[in-house]
Nucleic acid binder design. Structure first.
Lengths: 208, 208
DNA sequence: TCAGCATACCCCCGATCGGGGGATATGGAG
DNA sequence: CTCCATATCCCCCGATCGGGGGTATGCTGA
């Protein structure tokens, strides 16, 4: 199996490379440390499996996945990341990922997953599956609600949200209300915290 | 140099181990994946250098550092973590860390830092130093303000903050006001986001 | 000793929030 | 074609927020 590894942490790449190198049916054929680089390398190498982190500077991993999958629908991509927010997992799988692993997993789990995915299977470890299951029944935020949420996280009042989105303050308020109800939050502050925990928005950087 | 490595990511440990193993003046003498385990291993092995992640399940790295340094004041600890919030860096250094590295650094940087720290030096990469410098003039939140901030992040109103802390709503309000002014936030929501970005609180889990 | 700070409390007041009740239009799914 | 989610706008109203003022305690470090 020819593997492309995409991650901006050289030390982690080293670790994965060591694990892969010890297998006689796998080899790392390319590495990338950013989204655009990942797309380039995929075009050049056509790997059987791609290991992809989601948190990277610049273009994030999700966009890279979407690009690769739209160009190469048969690409097998395994997401390997630190965070386990259900929304982030769902977005990645919708983009076309075949598996979603957390970085705190063991070597064996990584190797097992690579082999499963190579056989064409999809895979979610129970830890991740459980997180998704816990929010199966929740209905997702709509596009407008996401926009409002991001502005609220920047400290915008309802009036400012209205101005920036060119809608009335009343409309912004009603969006905020449904955000609170969908997320089960008591106020806008808790809504932002819950959304960050669940991977709905990324407050550490900026956009989703 | 005898090195103890503390991190809950086996794959990253593998990577660091590979890098260290290639050096003829260093070796990994022990590994730990949690705070208590780190303290145990330190007592048993008395390493020259300890590489420590801050984000770990259970006891966090900061507490482990404090425990180790109070028992072994000559311990040389290098923090190796993902996040770069200025408050987190400052807390770690106050706890007694000798250096603060980000996980996206190169092998060479890690090795350089290990050697510098082994000589008794302290070290902050310019990337990290810059983040601290940007907030040098800010005055830190007081203990009570931290308590209030954590409750606010949980969606508490001023009244609820007052009840939970056994102070009046008015006092809670005045704490919130100074939090807003110290963080430069427009409202409590933005205050929580800024505090999370700067590593003042950790909204992804719970406590600071 | 005394200034400075953190802590705690109080009042006022306009702005904002969040819940409640609506209404209308659009567009896609069944 | 009907149903439903989305999106937009409107009004009311009590609760909450955040800024402004002020007072008092106790600890600490210069």
């Amino acid at each position: 199996m020819r593997i492309l590894m995409v991650d901006d942490h050289p030390l982690l790449r080293e670790g994965i490379a060591a694990v892969i190198a010890a297998q006689d049916d796998m080899s790392i054929v390319a590495e990338a440390s950013s989204g655009p680089e990942a797309i380039d390398m995929f075009r050049k190498c056509r790997p059987d499996i791609t290991l992809m982190d989601l948190q990277m500077p610049g273009m994030n991993g999700e966009e890279a996945i979407r690009n690769i999958v739209s160009e190469f629908p048969k690409a097998r991509i395994i997401v390997l990341t630190n965070y386990s927010g259900d929304a982030q997992v769902i977005r990645a799988m919708k983009m076309g990922a075949s598996a979603y692993l957390l970085k705190n997993m063991l070597r064996a789990d990584l190797l097992d997953t690579i082999r499963k995915v190579h056989e064409g299977k999809h895979y979610l470890p129970s830890e991740v599956a459980g997180i998704i299951a816990a929010h199966m029944m929740d209905d997702a935020l709509s596009g407008r609600e996401m926009d409002v949420l991001r502005l609220v996280a920047q400290g915008c009042s309802n009036k400012e949200v209205g101005n920036r989105m060119h809608i009335s303050e009343e409309t912004a308020k009603s969006h905020v209300s449904s955000i609170l109800s969908k997320l089960g939050a008591r106020d806008r502050t808790q809504a932002v915290v819950i959304a960050a925990r669940r991977g709905i928005i990324d407050i550490l950087n900026g956009a989703p």
